[in-house]
């Protein structure tokens, strides 16, 4: 057994190839889902791609893996990076040539963010999407968005768009902190 800690260079090299001692044939589908749950969204590193609901499906026969991924927004600049991060994580687990499919339909909705994902967003300082996307009104009043930092419901929207397309910018009128709100779509 080699007990020395791998250097960052080792990790870099290893991340790009299949480890020699990997036994991907022993991986179950559940194990692959668990591996995917370790792949974090690069723009919101508090949640995994599974918690975000963008991994739609996978098929695994012990040799060939296909993962269906859907983008959050049409113009999300992280789409290619996320696909590459997923492929990399799969290769690191010993899976050769994982195939990542980009699927547009059905369109991603924030309703697919898991309960756990919502809690992690809140803990990260981002207010999770409120209510259901299908019930959002076009020109009507907004829902009350609670401050993820102090919990106050005394907040106001500063802008419909925040640091990324998927978020709006809010401000808490009690603790005075600005915060991102993950918009319902």
């Amino acid at each position: 057994m080699n007990e020395h800690e791998p250097s960052s260079v080792d990790v870099l090299i290893a991340s790009d190839r299949v480890p020699a001692n990997a036994r991907p044939d022993l991986l179950t589908e559940d194990a692959i889902w668990a591996l995917l749950d370790n792949v974090l969204d690069p723009e919101v590193p508090a949640v995994s791609v599974v918690e975000l609901g963008i991994v739609r499906d996978l098929s695994w026969d012990g040799t060939h893996l296909t993962v269906d991924v859907t983008p959050t927004y049409s113009g999300c600049p992280a789409t290619e990076l996320i696909e590459e991060l997923i492929a990399e994580a799969m290769r690191a687990a010993g899976i050769r040539d994982p195939q990542i499919n980009r699927v547009l339909t059905p369109a991603w909705t924030t309703d697919w963010i898991t309960e756990e994902g919502r809690e992690k967003l809140r803990a990260f300082g981002i207010a999770p999407p409120q209510g259901s996307a299908s019930k959002m009104s076009l020109l009507g009043a907004d829902d009350v968005i609670a401050c993820p930092l102090c919990g106050s419901e005394h907040t106001e929207r500063l802008s419909e768009f925040g640091s990324t397309a998927c978020k709006a910018l809010y401000r808490c009128l009690d603790c005075r902190e600005p915060f991102d709100y993950f918009k319902c779509i």
């Binding site: 927004y73 049409s74 113009g75 547009l104 339909t105 059905p106 369109a107 991603w108 909705t109 996307a133 959002m136 076009l138 419909e160 768009f161 397309a165 918009k183 779509i185």
Partner: peptide, 11 residues
């Protein structure tokens, strides 16, 4: 394409 885009256009 449109089903995805219309959600964005709403905002």
């Amino acid at each position: 394409i449109a089903a995805k885009a219309v959600k964005e256009a709403t905002y």
